[in-house]
Simulated scan of single mutants.
Amino acid sequence: MNAFPEPVDRLVRELQRLPGIGRRTATRLAFHLLKDTDDHAHALAQAIEDVKTHISCCGICFQLTDVEPCRLCTNPARDASTILVVEQPGDLMTFEGTGMFRGLYHVLAGRIDPLAGVRPEDLTVPALLERIDVPEKNARGVRVTEVILGLNPNLEGDSTTLYLAEVLSQRDVQVTRLARGLPSGSQLEFANNAILADALHGRQGVEDGVG
């Protein structure tokens, strides 16, 4: 028999569904919410509802946005001829945090993983190629001249980088990748700004090798 009232137990179970949250942490968070003010609890609930209701993916770069196109794609101060390809919106925010990149992004919404059944067409790869092949499909109708492959330095990320490098080599666009400085198997979101800034600044052509 559960010692918690049903609403508390249900809250704990829902919190456990979040990444990295086990039963103990979920219970601690639930009790924190119970002790918090009604205003804070309602503000959290409203923020979650607003995100689910008003946030979608930009039709150009596929980052999270509440306007269409997103504010990065419509910003005239950004260099729309350079696209940094990342796996997830969180990676985009990580690069933005460096303050070093002034181009645009393309969020793949994952990475190629044959064992998990994830193919290029399951990601936003076709939309990336369309942005390159048809300038009108890119932000502000600008022709893409450089694509930077900024995927996580692990097996699936490197495999996706190799695939994209091969496909993009058939197009009139410069293809570069981040300079090696990130530990193999690591995640970009955990890298510090200095390392990411160096990786961007020292990016190299894919002909210099991947891996």
Score class of each variant (00 low, 15 high):
residue 3 A to E: 15
residue 82 T to V: 15
residue 64 L to N: 12
residue 70 C to P: 08
residue 95 F to D: 13
residue 99 G to R: 03
residue 180 R to K: 09
residue 75 N to F: 10
residue 76 P to T: 00
residue 191 A to T: 09
residue 106 H to I: 12
residue 206 V to K: 11
residue 142 V to N: 09
residue 205 G to W: 10
residue 40 H to D: 15
residue 76 P to A: 11
residue 190 F to V: 13
residue 56 S to K: 13
residue 101 F to W: 15
residue 185 G to R: 09
residue 79 D to W: 06
residue 78 R to G: 07
residue 28 R to I: 05
residue 61 C to T: 06
residue 195 I to G: 13
residue 189 E to F: 01
residue 35 K to D: 15
residue 116 A to T: 08
residue 148 I to P: 06
residue 118 V to G: 10
residue 149 L to I: 02
residue 153 P to M: 01
residue 148 I to Q: 08
residue 78 R to W: 08
residue 30 A to I: 03
residue 61 C to L: 10
residue 80 A to S: 04
residue 108 L to K: 00
residue 41 A to C: 15
residue 9 D to I: 01
residue 132 I to W: 08
residue 129 L to G: 12
residue 34 L to A: 11
residue 138 N to P: 01
residue 132 I to M: 11
residue 146 E to A: 01
residue 144 V to D: 01
residue 139 A to V: 06
residue 196 L to K: 05
residue 172 D to V: 06
residue 8 V to R: 05
residue 128 L to E: 09
residue 188 L to M: 07
residue 135 P to H: 10
residue 111 R to Q: 15
residue 125 V to S: 01
residue 15 L to N: 00
residue 12 V to F: 09
residue 178 L to P: 02
residue 23 R to I: 07
residue 35 K to Y: 14
residue 155 L to K: 06
residue 126 P to H: 06
residue 196 L to N: 05
residue 152 N to Y: 09
residue 118 V to C: 07
residue 158 D to H: 09
residue 198 D to M: 13
residue 36 D to N: 10
residue 188 L to F: 11
residue 15 L to G: 07
residue 62 F to R: 04
residue 7 P to A: 00
residue 105 Y to H: 06
residue 110 G to Q: 10
residue 94 T to A: 04
residue 24 R to V: 04
residue 70 C to K: 04
residue 118 V to K: 09
residue 128 L to P: 06
residue 23 R to A: 11
residue 66 D to F: 03
residue 60 I to L: 00
residue 148 I to A: 06
residue 32 H to E: 12
residue 8 V to S: 04
residue 75 N to S: 12
residue 115 L to V: 03
residue 42 H to T: 14
residue 167 V to S: 11
residue 38 D to A: 14
residue 194 A to F: 15
residue 89 P to A: 00
residue 173 V to N: 00
residue 58 C to S: 04
residue 160 T to P: 08
residue 203 R to S: 11
residue 201 H to Q: 13
residue 90 G to E: 14
residue 30 A to E: 07
residue 115 L to P: 10
residue 120 P to I: 06
residue 174 Q to S: 12
residue 75 N to I: 06
residue 17 R to W: 03
residue 107 V to A: 01
residue 158 D to V: 06
residue 58 C to Y: 08
residue 132 I to D: 11
residue 143 R to Q: 14
residue 42 H to Q: 14
residue 78 R to T: 02
residue 24 R to N: 03
residue 139 A to F: 00
residue 211 G to I: 04
residue 20 G to W: 04
residue 30 A to N: 01
residue 116 A to L: 07
residue 125 V to T: 02
residue 50 D to K: 02
residue 184 S to A: 13
residue 39 D to C: 12
residue 205 G to I: 01
residue 166 E to G: 13
residue 195 I to E: 15
residue 10 R to H: 10
residue 32 H to W: 13
residue 157 G to H: 02
residue 211 G to L: 12
residue 73 C to Y: 10
residue 106 H to Q: 02
residue 34 L to D: 00
residue 98 T to Y: 09
residue 15 L to C: 09
residue 174 Q to C: 13
residue 199 A to T: 04
residue 97 G to M: 04
residue 185 G to A: 00
residue 31 F to V: 08
residue 133 D to M: 05
residue 59 G to C: 12
residue 153 P to R: 09
residue 79 D to V: 03
residue 100 M to Q: 15
residue 47 A to K: 00
residue 69 P to F: 03
residue 175 V to E: 04
residue 72 L to W: 13
residue 40 H to K: 05
residue 56 S to N: 13
residue 87 E to F: 02
residue 129 L to C: 11
residue 149 L to C: 03
residue 146 E to Q: 05
